[in-house]
């Protein structure tokens, strides 16, 4: 009887030790996950959201933009055909989507080719295709009113301008909406249109050389001029077709 009692007690002690070890391991795992979450939160929240800038995904461009696209501000991106305007806009949308931001592309020209975009970008992209430029601004109003979008791109290139628009007034309205929603707004046009009162800065694109390999287009180079707060910077960028 005593032997049996001792045996039972030893089994109890063993299972208690096993349970304690298991609990300690679980607690260590939980502590590890929590520390990761804390670190993640610290990295994301060290700067308030409205002060943080949206990175363009290109370090040299981020330097020229003084940290990235400013939230709650309107920037104008303009340039001639084939100068890299759309590639630049898609680049900024991809970079924002990669950081978990919701993005919107208001494509008045109906020109966006989904094959140009990364899968990650398409997952977080709201694509709206209004038919008129003025409707494009109304769509931007609605999207900015909804809030929560990190980057809103209004693409107006190559669209036949049949409407007479007060561009400065429209851009000012866009600026107020952007301030309220804390979204970065990018206005993409053929030529600079919005008055500088409404803009936080301008980006100009110029055509560069094309690279061909084996009879196929490989990449093209663009010259990007960034003009923010009277500081002008030149950034050469190459966009790769194989990507």
């Amino acid at each position: 009887m005593e032997l049996e009692e001792g045996f039972r007690r030893s089994i109890d002690i063993c299972s208690f030790v096993q349970y304690t070890v298991h609990m300690a391991a679980t607690a260590a795992k939980i502590a590890n996950v929590l520390s990761h979450l804390r670190e993640d939160a610290r990295l994301r929240e060290t700067v308030p959201r409205e002060d943080r800038r949206l990175s363009s995904g290109v370090s040299s461009l981020d330097v020229a933009l003084q940290g990235g696209l400013p939230r709650g501000r309107v920037l104008e991106l303009s340039g001639p055909r084939s100068s890299g305007r759309l590639s630049m806009a898609v680049q900024l949308l991809s970079a924002a989507a990669a950081r978990g931001e919701w993005t919107a592309l208001i494509d008045v020209s109906d020109a966006f080719d989904p094959r140009s975009a990364s899968l990650l970008m398409m997952d977080r992209l709201l694509w709206v295709r209004p038919r008129m430029t003025f409707d494009g601004f109304k769509v931007a109003d609605l999207i900015l009113d909804a809030g929560g979008f990190g980057l809103v791109v209004l693409y107006l290139c190559e669209h036949p301008q049949r409407e007479r628009l007060d561009w400065t007034a429209l851009a000012l309205r866009l600026k107020h909406r952007a301030e309220r929603s804390q979204a970065a707004v990018l206005l993409v046009t053929d030529v600079p249109r919005a008055g500088s009162v409404a803009l936080a800065g301008r980006i100009h694109t110029r055509s560069g050389a094309y690279r061909w390999r084996g009879g196929l287009l490989e990449k093209r180079e663009s010259e990007i001029t960034v003009e923010i707060k009277h500081a002008v910077s030149e950034v050469p960028l190459a966009f790769d077709l194989s990507e």
């Binding site: 995904g57 290109v58 370090s59 055909r81 084939s82 759309l86 590639s87 806009a89 898609v90 680049q91 991809s94 970079a95 990669a98 950081r99 020209s109 109906d110 020109a111 966006f112 080719d113 094959r115 140009s116 975009a117 990364s118 290139c157 190559e158 287009l217 990449k219 093209r220 960028l237 190459a238 966009f239 790769d240 077709l241 990507e243």
Partner: peptide, 14 residues
């Protein structure tokens, strides 16, 4: 999150 996002050449579709 990648430090640099690949820069793809986009097509302006007609």
């Amino acid at each position: 999150i990648p430090a640099a996002v690949p820069r793809a050449l986009a097509l302006h579709a007609f």
